[in-house]
Design a protein around this nucleic acid. Sequence first.
DNA 1: CGGTATCCGCCGGGATACTG
DNA 2: CAGTATCCCGGCGGATACCG
Lengths: 113, 113
Amino acid sequence: MLKILALIGDKWSILVIGQLRDRTLRFSELHRAVTGISQRMLTLTLRQLERDGLLTRTVHPSVPPRVDYALTPLGATLLDSVAALAEWATTHRQEINSNRRHYDATHSPRTQP
Amino acid sequence: MLKILALIGDKWSILVIGQLRDRTLRFSELHRAVTGISQRMLTLTLRQLERDGLLTRTVHPSVPPRVDYALTPLGATLLDSVAALAEWATTHRQEINSNRRHYDATHSPRTQP
DNA sequence: CGGTATCCGCCGGGATACTG
DNA sequence: CAGTATCCCGGCGGATACCG
């Protein structure tokens, strides 16, 4: 359970899955699409998602090599569930940011007592 | 957005919020209820959740001191959304575990070539 | 092009000790 | 009881170099 929710907590996982929402992408395209991810983390993330059956990895035996990644139906259902949570986030983002500002204003350590 | 989703990814946040679903708890009760959490992480988690307005912190000026934590309406709505995702996890947990076993069986490094 | 392999710095978080 | 304050270690992930 927590292991699966941890999947969501991993920012790279969500971002990668999000990019594959409605298209197939190859490794280098994903690398460009997901801003800031290192080659290493992209590989590791893709391996984990493939292992969980959330996406498929297709190797085309050509020169130069080409590897395509696409969401499975299971991956798509996860994306839907996460989208619901993301909707919660957007709905309440202003409220949360307001709460944070208020908290920081009233609880921040006094720099000038 | 990602900062807010990260809230979900943090296992301690979910576990703490889950404990407060339908009751108010004091610090020591939470410490006992959430298995494995350290005093430090409980404090930090509670501070963050309070800052975001997901729970309230009530100090009772008594001896010994007593501090009660309770979900806010905002916190309750988050709990509902997370529950939906948790339902996804329980629904597909068998499938995912099966996928993992299959992956490990077919892709694991050969120990005896 | 699509990866491994290796090194390494950093910081998340546990353990412990102390306080209002 | 409900926290701070320190110390300290493991492992996550970036940077870099190399390979099929």
